[in-house]
């Protein structure tokens, strides 16, 4: 039952993408998109991703929306800061460990991606719940002090709502 609901939701998404790519809205195009989406999902379930991945890659709609909005703001802050650092040549690169309180792999990978996109940091490596991060303005190597400055509020944004 749950699987069927997931299929129907994903078929709507696939149909929307298909309509955008075809640049035409009529019954045939929507039906074609939904059917191709269904075929794709069946092949994926059968040969590529075995097991229940639907629950693993779940993010609430509003959580995702707030996350993306905050991400774009942070990307712009990052860009302006990077330009400032290039022009003044103020660089103090270091590598720090950051501990995260998130548990699921999907959430940790989202956090690592957002760290890569936000001001002055790129994720290098992950061991358990510890992320290795290059930091362009490395003032401290203490994980507890560096953590909040690097993670910003993404941890609560990602796990916020129904996680």
């Amino acid at each position: 039952m749950k699987r069927l609901l997931h299929y129907i939701k994903m078929m709507i998404v696939f149909a929307v993408v298909w309509v955008i790519l075809e640049e035409r809205i009529d019954g045939t195009t929507v039906l074609m998109g939904a059917l191709i989406g269904l075929g794709t999902m069946l092949v994926t379930d059968r040969y590529v991703l075995r097991g229940d991945y639907q629950e693993t890659y779940r993010l609430g709609f509003w959580t995702a929306l707030r996350y993306v909005a905050s991400l774009i703001v942070q990307i712009y802050v990052a860009g302006v800061q990077a330009v400032y650092r290039v022009l003044t040549r103020k660089l103090n690169v270091g590598i720090v460990d950051v501990k995260t309180s998130l548990t699921s792999d999907f959430h940790i990978s989202l956090l690592a991606n957002s760290i890569t996109l936000t001001p002055g940091t790129v994720t290098l490596d992950r061991k358990g719940d510890t992320l290795k991060v290059i930091w362009i303005d490395c003032t401290t190597t203490d994980p507890d002090e560096a953590g909040p400055q690097i993670k910003l509020n993404f941890e609560s944004l990602i796990s916020g709502g129904r996680s």
Partner: peptide, 13 residues
């Protein structure tokens, strides 16, 4: 490393 960090940001923006 500083090249990687700078280009990753500026490119995306």
């Amino acid at each position: 490393y500083s090249r990687v960090v700078i280009t990753a940001k500026v490119d995306t923006v």
